[in-house]
């Protein structure tokens, strides 16, 4: 995608955010609505400026948005799955899975290293948060608590 097209989308998104914020804020009573409404208008105006500037500019140059698509997809997908699994499997199990599975998914082929590292790392986190600080972290769904 060229920088021109990117800026058209970017400006459009900001304009949309600004306009919807201004519309929502118009419903707030008195002084509490004036400020966010004004801000919404400013965001929208600047968004439209970026959009308009891009439309009027030349054909544009390519600007790389993502250096390596598959790896970004793997990382973000795994990270999203991890966050989704934290309340289900509990924090420690989900974290252990992430630390063990993500490196091979990114092409790392030294399983022993990964496993040892995962054990040490999750162990340290467990020591710090559950033993020293006694912070309750999400527990597995099958746990009573």
């Amino acid at each position: 995608m060229t920088d021109r097209r990117q800026d058209i989308v970017l400006g459009g998104v900001f304009a949309a955010i600004g306009i919807s914020a201004a519309v929502i804020a118009a419903g707030y009573p008195g002084a509490s609505g004036v400020y966010p409404m004004a801000l919404g208008c400013v965001v929208a105006a600047l968004g439209l400026l970026v959009l308009g500037r891009a439309v009027l500019s030349g054909p544009g140059k390519p600007r790389i948005l993502i250096d390596h698509g598959p790896r970004v997809a793997i990382t973000l997908g795994t990270a999203a799955a991890y966050l989704g699994l934290v309340p289900v499997l509990g924090f420690y199990l989900a974290s252990a899975l992430l630390v063990v599975l993500l490196p091979p998914a990114l092409g790392f082929r030294r399983p022993v290293f990964v496993l040892v590292n995962a054990a040490v790392f999750v162990g340290i986190v467990w020591l710090v948060f559950s033993i020293v600080l006694e912070k309750p972290l999400p527990t597995p769904f099958w746990s009573a608590y």
Binding site: G90, Y92, L93, A96, V100, A118, A119, V122, G123, W126, P140
Partner: peptide, 8 residues
């Protein structure tokens, strides 16, 4: 690590 989590 899994073992530990399961024990807990």
């Amino acid at each position: 690590m899994k073992h530990l989590a399961l024990t807990i």
